[in-house]
């Protein structure tokens, strides 16, 4: 996994609640068998009109949001389907940090597996960022070491993140590798597992 330590990047604001993973990456783009190349389809049905032209009214299509690396979104971001294509698409598009008042469970988990940092901030903090940006190009620094968000102009917001997840993200740890360090424990568990448990052995 790509480690995450800190990022200084422009911010995009998507002021919508309950953005589901069907919106983040519509189902017609889930047929790729790679992890890459999903960025061009991010928010596809919102970014593009039915005739394929750019929807200039969509938040992310405004010129000052070009090149954004941080997305500030509404509550319950990433709800719905478990598709990991959602964090893949967000990262491929250029985002490394998503800030929202709350996230859906599976999406939140998927982000950490890919080096995408989801940050939960309360509504007043998000409002503070929004008003500081005041519709202009706005740059933030997100530092996972110090767990802080700063804009270099006086705003400094602390955020919380689970210590173990933070450790894994800072070091880009492969959690399969971590689990396999305990292969003896897995084998011990398996030796106690009742043989009556369902199995596909002998089916092939």
């Amino acid at each position: 996994m790509t480690p995450f330590t800190s990022l200084t990047a422009p911010v995009a604001f998507l002021d919508r609640a309950n953005v589901d993973t069907d919106q983040i990456i519509p189902k017609q783009f889930l047929k790729r068998v790679e992890r890459t190349g999903f960025g061009e389809f991010l928010f596809f049905d919102w970014r593009f009109n039915a005739d394929g032209t750019l929807n200039v009214d969509f938040e992310l299509n405004t010129p000052d949001m070009a090149g954004a690396g941080i997305l500030v979104a509404g509550k319950n971001f990433g709800s719905g389907s478990s598709r990991e294509h959602a964090p893949w698409a967000l990262m491929d598009y250029g985002f490394r940090v998503i800030i929202a008042p709350s996230f859906a469970d599976i999406f939140y988990n998927n982000c950490f597996k890919n080096g995408l940092l989801p940050i939960v901030l309360d509504d007043p903090s998000i409002e503070l960022l929004r008003s500081a940006a005041s519709g202009e190009r706005y740059v933030l620094t997100v530092d996972l070491q110090t767990q802080s968000i700063t804009d270099g102009k006086g705003i400094e917001i602390a955020f919380l993140v689970d210590a173990f997840r933070r450790h894994c993200l800072l070091n880009g740890l492969d959690d399969i590798g971590l689990t396999l360090e305990h292969a003896d424990d897995i084998s011990a568990y398996e030796s106690m597992r009742p043989s009556r448990m369902p199995s596909l052995a002998g089916q092939r």
Binding site: R35, S82, R83, E84, P87, I106, N109, N110, K113, N114, D175, I176, T179, L180, I186
Partner: peptide, 11 residues
């Protein structure tokens, strides 16, 4: 998610 699918396949 798919990363966890891989995790379960491997472990």
């Amino acid at each position: 998610g798919t990363s966890e699918v891989e995790h379960v396949l491997a472990t």
